[in-house]
Design a protein around this nucleic acid. Structure first.
Lengths: 194, 194
DNA sequence: GGCGAAAATGAATTTTGGTTCGATTAAGGA
DNA sequence: TCCTTAATCGAACCAAAATTCATTTTCGCC
Protein backbone atom coordinates (compact mmCIF):
# COMPACT_ATOMS: atom_id res chain seq x y z
CA UNK A 1 0.00 0.00 0.00
CA UNK A 2 1.67 3.17 -1.20
CA UNK A 3 0.29 5.80 1.15
CA UNK A 4 0.83 9.42 2.16
CA UNK A 5 2.83 12.01 0.30
CA UNK A 6 1.69 10.65 -2.98
CA UNK A 7 -1.91 9.66 -3.30
CA UNK A 8 -3.14 6.25 -2.36
CA UNK A 9 -4.34 4.25 -5.31
CA UNK A 10 -7.90 4.80 -4.19
CA UNK A 11 -7.40 8.55 -4.21
CA UNK A 12 -5.89 8.36 -7.64
CA UNK A 13 -8.96 6.53 -8.86
CA UNK A 14 -11.28 9.10 -7.36
CA UNK A 15 -9.38 12.01 -8.82
CA UNK A 16 -9.36 10.57 -12.28
CA UNK A 17 -13.02 9.77 -11.91
CA UNK A 18 -13.69 13.39 -11.04
CA UNK A 19 -12.05 14.47 -14.28
CA UNK A 20 -14.11 12.00 -16.22
CA UNK A 21 -17.37 12.89 -14.51
CA UNK A 22 -16.80 16.54 -15.10
CA UNK A 23 -16.14 16.04 -18.78
CA UNK A 24 -18.88 13.63 -19.70
CA UNK A 25 -21.23 13.68 -16.76
CA UNK A 26 -21.67 10.87 -14.26
CA UNK A 27 -24.27 8.88 -16.14
CA UNK A 28 -22.37 9.01 -19.41
CA UNK A 29 -19.10 7.95 -17.80
CA UNK A 30 -18.36 4.26 -17.83
CA UNK A 31 -16.11 2.34 -15.54
CA UNK A 32 -14.28 1.15 -18.63
CA UNK A 33 -13.55 4.75 -19.56
CA UNK A 34 -12.24 5.36 -16.10
CA UNK A 35 -10.11 2.24 -16.13
CA UNK A 36 -8.64 3.22 -19.45
CA UNK A 37 -7.66 6.63 -18.13
CA UNK A 38 -5.75 4.84 -15.38
CA UNK A 39 -4.23 2.31 -17.72
CA UNK A 40 -5.87 -0.69 -16.10
CA UNK A 41 -8.86 -2.97 -16.66
CA UNK A 42 -12.32 -2.13 -15.41
CA UNK A 43 -12.37 -5.06 -13.04
CA UNK A 44 -9.28 -3.76 -11.31
CA UNK A 45 -11.11 -0.68 -10.15
CA UNK A 46 -13.06 -2.79 -7.73
CA UNK A 47 -9.95 -3.55 -5.73
CA UNK A 48 -10.08 0.08 -4.66
CA UNK A 49 -13.68 1.17 -4.62
CA UNK A 50 -16.94 -0.53 -3.85
CA UNK A 51 -18.99 0.91 -6.68
CA UNK A 52 -19.25 3.69 -9.19
CA UNK A 53 -21.56 5.58 -6.93
CA UNK A 54 -19.22 5.37 -3.99
CA UNK A 55 -16.88 7.59 -5.96
CA UNK A 56 -19.58 10.17 -6.49
CA UNK A 57 -20.44 10.03 -2.81
CA UNK A 58 -16.85 10.71 -1.83
CA UNK A 59 -16.60 13.64 -4.16
CA UNK A 60 -19.88 15.22 -3.15
CA UNK A 61 -19.65 14.81 0.59
CA UNK A 62 -16.00 15.76 0.83
CA UNK A 63 -16.75 19.03 -0.93
CA UNK A 64 -19.83 19.61 1.20
CA UNK A 65 -17.69 19.20 4.27
CA UNK A 66 -15.20 21.80 3.06
CA UNK A 67 -17.95 24.29 2.38
CA UNK A 68 -19.41 23.76 5.80
CA UNK A 69 -16.09 24.34 7.50
CA UNK A 70 -15.50 27.51 5.54
CA UNK A 71 -18.85 29.02 6.45
CA UNK A 72 -18.44 28.09 10.07
CA UNK A 73 -15.20 30.02 10.12
CA UNK A 74 -16.89 33.06 8.60
CA UNK A 75 -19.68 33.00 11.14
CA UNK A 76 -17.17 32.75 13.93
CA UNK A 77 -15.41 35.86 12.72
CA UNK A 78 -18.53 38.02 12.82
CA UNK A 79 -18.82 41.55 11.47
CA UNK A 80 -21.74 43.27 9.80
CA UNK A 81 -23.77 41.70 7.04
CA UNK A 82 -21.74 43.14 4.17
CA UNK A 83 -18.61 41.86 5.76
CA UNK A 84 -19.94 38.41 6.49
CA UNK A 85 -21.40 38.10 3.02
CA UNK A 86 -18.14 39.17 1.53
CA UNK A 87 -16.17 36.72 3.63
CA UNK A 88 -18.62 33.97 2.85
CA UNK A 89 -18.23 34.57 -0.86
CA UNK A 90 -14.47 34.63 -0.68
CA UNK A 91 -14.43 31.49 1.42
CA UNK A 92 -16.71 29.68 -0.97
CA UNK A 93 -14.57 30.64 -3.92
CA UNK A 94 -11.43 29.54 -2.16
CA UNK A 95 -12.86 26.15 -1.34
CA UNK A 96 -13.81 25.67 -4.95
CA UNK A 97 -10.47 26.91 -6.21
CA UNK A 98 -8.71 24.29 -4.12
CA UNK A 99 -10.32 21.63 -6.31
CA UNK A 100 -12.08 22.98 -9.35
CA UNK A 101 -12.71 19.58 -10.79
CA UNK A 102 -14.37 18.14 -7.72
CA UNK A 103 -16.33 21.37 -7.40
CA UNK A 104 -17.75 21.01 -10.87
CA UNK A 105 -18.77 17.45 -10.14
CA UNK A 106 -20.25 18.43 -6.80
CA UNK A 107 -22.35 21.02 -8.55
CA UNK A 108 -23.55 19.17 -11.61
CA UNK A 109 -23.64 15.52 -10.71
CA UNK A 110 -24.94 15.31 -7.18
CA UNK A 111 -28.39 14.54 -8.48
CA UNK A 112 -27.22 11.09 -9.46
CA UNK A 113 -26.74 10.11 -5.88
CA UNK A 114 -29.18 7.45 -4.81
CA UNK A 115 -31.21 7.56 -1.65
CA UNK A 116 -30.63 8.11 1.16
CA UNK A 117 -27.45 9.93 0.13
CA UNK A 118 -29.28 12.31 -2.10
CA UNK A 119 -31.58 13.35 0.69
CA UNK A 120 -28.69 13.89 3.07
CA UNK A 121 -26.82 15.88 0.50
CA UNK A 122 -29.75 18.15 -0.21
CA UNK A 123 -30.24 18.76 3.47
CA UNK A 124 -26.65 19.87 3.83
CA UNK A 125 -27.04 22.14 0.87
CA UNK A 126 -30.26 23.77 1.97
CA UNK A 127 -28.73 24.39 5.35
CA UNK A 128 -25.72 26.05 3.78
CA UNK A 129 -27.87 28.21 1.55
CA UNK A 130 -30.10 29.22 4.40
CA UNK A 131 -27.18 30.48 6.38
CA UNK A 132 -26.30 32.79 3.53
CA UNK A 133 -29.93 33.78 3.32
CA UNK A 134 -29.83 34.71 6.99
CA UNK A 135 -26.90 36.99 6.35
CA UNK A 136 -28.72 38.72 3.52
CA UNK A 137 -31.87 39.09 5.60
CA UNK A 138 -29.85 40.56 8.41
CA UNK A 139 -28.37 43.07 5.99
CA UNK A 140 -31.82 44.02 4.76
CA UNK A 141 -33.26 44.46 8.23
CA UNK A 142 -30.36 46.55 9.41
CA UNK A 143 -30.58 48.82 6.40
CA UNK A 144 -27.31 47.75 4.84
CA UNK A 145 -28.98 46.12 1.85
CA UNK A 146 -31.89 47.13 -0.29
CA UNK A 147 -35.17 45.79 0.94
CA UNK A 148 -36.92 45.77 -2.40
CA UNK A 149 -35.08 42.79 -3.82
CA UNK A 150 -36.70 39.41 -3.45
CA UNK A 151 -34.71 37.42 -0.92
CA UNK A 152 -34.90 34.16 -2.76
CA UNK A 153 -33.79 35.87 -5.92
CA UNK A 154 -30.85 37.44 -4.13
CA UNK A 155 -29.64 34.19 -2.60
CA UNK A 156 -30.13 32.17 -5.74
CA UNK A 157 -28.35 34.73 -7.86
CA UNK A 158 -25.51 34.63 -5.42
CA UNK A 159 -25.21 30.87 -5.59
CA UNK A 160 -25.59 30.75 -9.32
CA UNK A 161 -22.67 33.09 -9.67
CA UNK A 162 -20.58 31.19 -7.21
CA UNK A 163 -21.31 27.75 -8.41
CA UNK A 164 -20.65 28.33 -12.02
CA UNK A 165 -17.18 29.56 -11.46
CA UNK A 166 -15.59 26.12 -11.86
CA UNK A 167 -16.99 25.98 -15.36
CA UNK A 168 -15.25 29.00 -16.72
CA UNK A 169 -12.44 29.93 -14.37
CA UNK A 170 -9.01 29.18 -15.74
CA UNK A 171 -6.49 28.73 -12.91
CA UNK A 172 -3.73 29.66 -15.33
CA UNK A 173 -5.28 33.08 -15.92
CA UNK A 174 -3.74 36.14 -14.35
CA UNK A 175 -6.56 36.55 -11.86
CA UNK A 176 -5.96 34.69 -8.64
CA UNK A 177 -8.76 33.01 -6.64
CA UNK A 178 -8.63 35.44 -3.74
CA UNK A 179 -8.94 38.40 -6.05
CA UNK A 180 -11.66 36.63 -7.96
CA UNK A 181 -13.59 36.24 -4.74
CA UNK A 182 -13.06 39.90 -3.89
CA UNK A 183 -14.25 41.09 -7.25
CA UNK A 184 -17.22 38.78 -7.24
CA UNK A 185 -18.21 39.97 -3.80
CA UNK A 186 -17.80 43.55 -4.94
CA UNK A 187 -19.89 43.01 -8.03
CA UNK A 188 -22.72 41.36 -6.19
CA UNK A 189 -22.74 43.75 -3.28
CA UNK A 190 -22.02 47.01 -5.10
CA UNK A 191 -23.03 46.20 -8.65
CA UNK A 192 -21.49 46.95 -11.98
CA UNK A 193 -22.44 50.57 -12.00
CA UNK A 194 -19.96 53.24 -11.07
CA UNK B 1 -52.20 13.80 -38.32
CA UNK B 2 -53.73 15.88 -35.56
CA UNK B 3 -52.09 19.24 -36.08
CA UNK B 4 -52.33 22.81 -34.89
CA UNK B 5 -54.14 24.06 -31.83
CA UNK B 6 -53.18 21.00 -29.87
CA UNK B 7 -49.68 19.72 -30.19
CA UNK B 8 -48.72 17.26 -32.85
CA UNK B 9 -47.75 13.88 -31.49
CA UNK B 10 -44.14 14.65 -32.20
CA UNK B 11 -44.33 17.82 -30.16
CA UNK B 12 -45.94 15.91 -27.32
CA UNK B 13 -43.08 13.47 -27.37
CA UNK B 14 -40.52 16.25 -27.29
CA UNK B 15 -42.22 18.05 -24.44
CA UNK B 16 -42.42 14.96 -22.29
CA UNK B 17 -38.84 14.19 -23.13
CA UNK B 18 -37.86 17.64 -21.91
CA UNK B 19 -39.49 16.92 -18.58
CA UNK B 20 -37.68 13.63 -18.32
CA UNK B 21 -34.32 15.04 -19.35
CA UNK B 22 -34.61 17.82 -16.87
CA UNK B 23 -35.40 15.48 -14.04
CA UNK B 24 -32.89 12.72 -14.62
CA UNK B 25 -30.49 14.18 -17.14
CA UNK B 26 -30.20 13.14 -20.76
CA UNK B 27 -27.82 10.25 -20.31
CA UNK B 28 -29.79 8.75 -17.45
CA UNK B 29 -33.09 8.99 -19.29
CA UNK B 30 -34.13 5.92 -21.23
CA UNK B 31 -36.44 5.75 -24.18
CA UNK B 32 -38.45 3.21 -22.23
CA UNK B 33 -38.92 5.76 -19.45
CA UNK B 34 -40.08 8.29 -21.98
CA UNK B 35 -42.47 5.84 -23.60
CA UNK B 36 -43.95 4.99 -20.25
CA UNK B 37 -44.61 8.64 -19.49
CA UNK B 38 -46.59 8.80 -22.72
CA UNK B 39 -48.39 5.54 -22.10
CA UNK B 40 -46.96 3.79 -25.13
CA UNK B 41 -44.22 1.30 -25.96
CA UNK B 42 -40.65 2.40 -26.65
CA UNK B 43 -40.82 1.20 -30.23
CA UNK B 44 -43.72 3.53 -30.92
CA UNK B 45 -41.58 6.56 -30.26
CA UNK B 46 -39.70 5.94 -33.46
CA UNK B 47 -42.77 6.69 -35.53
CA UNK B 48 -42.36 10.28 -34.41
CA UNK B 49 -38.68 10.90 -33.94
CA UNK B 50 -35.55 9.60 -35.57
CA UNK B 51 -33.48 9.11 -32.46
CA UNK B 52 -33.06 10.05 -28.85
CA UNK B 53 -30.55 12.67 -29.78
CA UNK B 54 -32.83 14.29 -32.31
CA UNK B 55 -35.03 15.26 -29.41
CA UNK B 56 -32.15 16.92 -27.63
CA UNK B 57 -31.22 18.72 -30.82
CA UNK B 58 -34.72 20.11 -31.20
CA UNK B 59 -34.78 21.34 -27.65
CA UNK B 60 -31.36 22.94 -27.73
CA UNK B 61 -31.53 24.64 -31.08
CA UNK B 62 -35.08 25.87 -30.69
CA UNK B 63 -34.12 27.59 -27.45
CA UNK B 64 -30.96 28.97 -29.01
CA UNK B 65 -33.03 30.48 -31.75
CA UNK B 66 -35.32 32.20 -29.27
CA UNK B 67 -32.40 33.69 -27.43
CA UNK B 68 -30.91 34.98 -30.63
CA UNK B 69 -34.14 36.65 -31.65
CA UNK B 70 -34.50 38.30 -28.28
CA UNK B 71 -31.02 39.77 -28.31
CA UNK B 72 -31.41 41.01 -31.85
CA UNK B 73 -34.47 42.91 -30.76
CA UNK B 74 -32.59 44.49 -27.88
CA UNK B 75 -29.73 45.59 -30.12
CA UNK B 76 -32.20 47.12 -32.56
CA UNK B 77 -33.73 49.20 -29.79
CA UNK B 78 -30.44 50.78 -28.79
CA UNK B 79 -29.87 52.99 -25.76
CA UNK B 80 -26.88 53.29 -23.50
CA UNK B 81 -25.04 50.31 -22.06
CA UNK B 82 -27.02 50.15 -18.82
CA UNK B 83 -30.21 50.19 -20.77
CA UNK B 84 -29.15 47.57 -23.29
CA UNK B 85 -27.79 45.34 -20.57
CA UNK B 86 -31.00 45.69 -18.65
CA UNK B 87 -33.12 44.93 -21.70
CA UNK B 88 -30.93 42.02 -22.60
CA UNK B 89 -31.35 40.52 -19.15
CA UNK B 90 -35.08 40.98 -19.17
CA UNK B 91 -35.35 39.50 -22.65
CA UNK B 92 -33.27 36.50 -21.66
CA UNK B 93 -35.39 35.88 -18.61
CA UNK B 94 -38.57 36.16 -20.61
CA UNK B 95 -37.40 33.66 -23.17
CA UNK B 96 -36.58 31.21 -20.40
CA UNK B 97 -39.83 31.85 -18.60
CA UNK B 98 -41.76 30.91 -21.72
CA UNK B 99 -40.42 27.39 -21.36
CA UNK B 100 -38.62 26.72 -18.11
CA UNK B 101 -38.31 23.04 -18.76
CA UNK B 102 -36.70 23.36 -22.15
CA UNK B 103 -34.49 26.09 -20.73
CA UNK B 104 -33.18 23.80 -18.05
CA UNK B 105 -32.43 21.11 -20.61
CA UNK B 106 -30.80 23.63 -22.92
CA UNK B 107 -28.55 24.67 -20.10
CA UNK B 108 -27.56 21.38 -18.55
CA UNK B 109 -27.77 18.79 -21.29
CA UNK B 110 -26.40 20.42 -24.40
CA UNK B 111 -23.06 18.82 -23.80
CA UNK B 112 -24.53 15.48 -24.80
CA UNK B 113 -25.01 16.65 -28.35
CA UNK B 114 -22.76 14.77 -30.73
CA UNK B 115 -20.66 16.41 -33.39
CA UNK B 116 -21.15 18.44 -35.44
CA UNK B 117 -24.18 19.65 -33.53
CA UNK B 118 -22.21 20.31 -30.39
CA UNK B 119 -19.77 22.50 -32.24
CA UNK B 120 -22.56 24.46 -33.89
CA UNK B 121 -24.32 24.91 -30.61
CA UNK B 122 -21.24 26.19 -28.85
CA UNK B 123 -20.59 28.64 -31.64
CA UNK B 124 -24.07 30.06 -31.25
CA UNK B 125 -23.56 30.32 -27.55
CA UNK B 126 -20.20 32.03 -27.68
CA UNK B 127 -21.59 34.50 -30.14
CA UNK B 128 -24.48 35.29 -27.83
CA UNK B 129 -22.22 35.72 -24.85
CA UNK B 130 -19.83 37.91 -26.75
CA UNK B 131 -22.59 40.28 -27.69
CA UNK B 132 -23.34 40.74 -24.01
CA UNK B 133 -19.66 41.16 -23.38
CA UNK B 134 -19.59 43.94 -25.97
CA UNK B 135 -22.34 45.74 -24.11
CA UNK B 136 -20.44 45.51 -20.85
CA UNK B 137 -17.23 46.69 -22.48
CA UNK B 138 -19.04 49.60 -23.99
CA UNK B 139 -20.36 50.50 -20.58
CA UNK B 140 -16.88 50.37 -19.10
CA UNK B 141 -15.32 52.49 -21.82
CA UNK B 142 -18.00 55.14 -21.62
CA UNK B 143 -17.67 55.37 -17.87
CA UNK B 144 -21.06 53.88 -17.05
CA UNK B 145 -19.61 50.79 -15.44
CA UNK B 146 -16.67 50.23 -13.17
CA UNK B 147 -13.48 49.52 -15.00
CA UNK B 148 -11.83 47.55 -12.24
CA UNK B 149 -13.94 44.43 -12.62
CA UNK B 150 -12.60 41.67 -14.79
CA UNK B 151 -14.68 41.54 -17.95
CA UNK B 152 -14.81 37.81 -18.17
CA UNK B 153 -15.85 37.62 -14.57
CA UNK B 154 -18.60 40.13 -15.16
CA UNK B 155 -20.04 38.35 -18.17
CA UNK B 156 -19.79 34.92 -16.64
CA UNK B 157 -21.40 36.07 -13.43
CA UNK B 158 -24.19 37.52 -15.46
CA UNK B 159 -24.81 34.31 -17.36
CA UNK B 160 -24.51 32.17 -14.29
CA UNK B 161 -27.24 34.17 -12.65
CA UNK B 162 -29.43 34.09 -15.70
CA UNK B 163 -29.01 30.49 -16.58
CA UNK B 164 -29.70 29.08 -13.21
CA UNK B 165 -33.03 30.69 -12.93
CA UNK B 166 -34.94 27.72 -14.40
CA UNK B 167 -33.62 25.61 -11.57
CA UNK B 168 -35.15 27.53 -8.74
CA UNK B 169 -37.81 29.82 -10.15
CA UNK B 170 -41.32 28.72 -9.31
CA UNK B 171 -43.80 30.09 -11.85
CA UNK B 172 -46.51 29.80 -9.24
CA UNK B 173 -44.70 32.20 -6.94
CA UNK B 174 -45.92 35.75 -6.56
CA UNK B 175 -43.04 37.19 -8.50
CA UNK B 176 -43.74 37.41 -12.21
CA UNK B 177 -41.04 36.87 -14.88
CA UNK B 178 -40.90 40.48 -16.00
CA UNK B 179 -40.39 41.68 -12.47
CA UNK B 180 -37.87 38.94 -11.89
CA UNK B 181 -35.91 40.21 -14.87
CA UNK B 182 -36.12 43.77 -13.60
CA UNK B 183 -34.91 42.85 -10.14
CA UNK B 184 -32.14 40.68 -11.48
CA UNK B 185 -30.99 43.47 -13.76
CA UNK B 186 -31.12 45.87 -10.85
CA UNK B 187 -29.17 43.58 -8.60
CA UNK B 188 -26.41 42.97 -11.11
CA UNK B 189 -26.14 46.55 -12.27
CA UNK B 190 -26.62 48.34 -8.96
CA UNK B 191 -25.75 45.66 -6.44
CA UNK B 192 -27.32 44.63 -3.20
CA UNK B 193 -26.08 47.58 -1.24
CA UNK B 194 -28.30 50.51 -0.53
C1' DG C 1 14.81 -15.69 -1.63
C1' DG C 2 10.33 -15.97 -0.27
C1' DC C 3 6.09 -14.32 2.30
C1' DG C 4 1.97 -11.58 2.34
C1' DA C 5 -0.67 -7.97 1.05
C1' DA C 6 -2.06 -5.02 -2.63
C1' DA C 7 -3.04 -4.59 -7.39
C1' DA C 8 -4.45 -6.21 -11.57
C1' DT C 9 -6.55 -9.52 -14.75
C1' DG C 10 -9.82 -12.14 -17.99
C1' DA C 11 -13.87 -14.29 -18.28
C1' DA C 12 -18.46 -14.46 -17.27
C1' DT C 13 -23.03 -12.71 -15.53
C1' DT C 14 -26.90 -10.03 -15.57
C1' DT C 15 -29.25 -5.88 -16.80
C1' DT C 16 -30.37 -2.29 -19.50
C1' DG C 17 -30.02 0.58 -23.36
C1' DG C 18 -31.25 2.37 -28.30
C1' DT C 19 -33.07 0.90 -32.21
C1' DT C 20 -35.23 -2.07 -36.15
C1' DC C 21 -38.82 -4.53 -38.31
C1' DG C 22 -42.88 -6.59 -39.81
C1' DA C 23 -47.36 -6.81 -38.53
C1' DT C 24 -51.61 -4.86 -36.48
C1' DT C 25 -54.95 -1.42 -35.16
C1' DA C 26 -57.60 3.10 -35.54
C1' DA C 27 -59.65 6.64 -37.87
C1' DG C 28 -61.00 9.80 -41.43
C1' DG C 29 -62.12 10.76 -46.17
C1' DA C 30 -63.67 9.26 -50.88
C1' DT D 1 -67.27 0.20 -47.49
C1' DC D 2 -62.61 0.52 -48.83
C1' DC D 3 -58.28 2.78 -48.83
C1' DT D 4 -54.66 5.41 -46.90
C1' DT D 5 -51.97 7.00 -43.45
C1' DA D 6 -50.69 7.66 -38.75
C1' DA D 7 -49.95 5.32 -34.51
C1' DT D 8 -48.94 1.49 -32.03
C1' DC D 9 -47.17 -2.92 -30.78
C1' DG D 10 -44.35 -7.26 -29.62
C1' DA D 11 -40.39 -9.47 -30.38
C1' DA D 12 -35.90 -9.41 -31.21
C1' DC D 13 -31.04 -7.61 -31.86
C1' DC D 14 -26.83 -5.99 -30.54
C1' DA D 15 -23.91 -3.14 -27.91
C1' DA D 16 -22.54 -1.52 -23.64
C1' DA D 17 -22.70 -1.26 -18.78
C1' DA D 18 -21.73 -2.46 -13.68
C1' DT D 19 -20.18 -5.87 -11.11
C1' DT D 20 -18.32 -10.65 -9.39
C1' DC D 21 -14.95 -14.04 -8.88
C1' DA D 22 -11.24 -17.02 -8.98
C1' DT D 23 -6.83 -16.51 -10.39
C1' DT D 24 -2.40 -14.40 -11.19
C1' DT D 25 1.11 -10.76 -10.99
C1' DT D 26 3.68 -7.29 -8.55
C1' DC D 27 6.47 -5.66 -5.02
C1' DG D 28 8.14 -4.03 -0.59
C1' DC D 29 9.99 -6.18 3.42
C1' DC D 30 12.03 -9.65 6.68
Amino acid sequence: MEAVGNLSRKEQVIRKAAELFREKGYAASSMRDLAQMLGIEAASLYSHIKSKEEILQSLCFDMASEFRKSLQEVEKQGGDASQKLRNGIIGHIQVMAKDLIASAVFMNEHRHLSQPYLRDFLLLRINYINRFKDIIEEGMEKGEFKKNIDKKLAVMTLFSSLNWMPQWYDPKSNIVPTELGEQLADMLVNGLKK
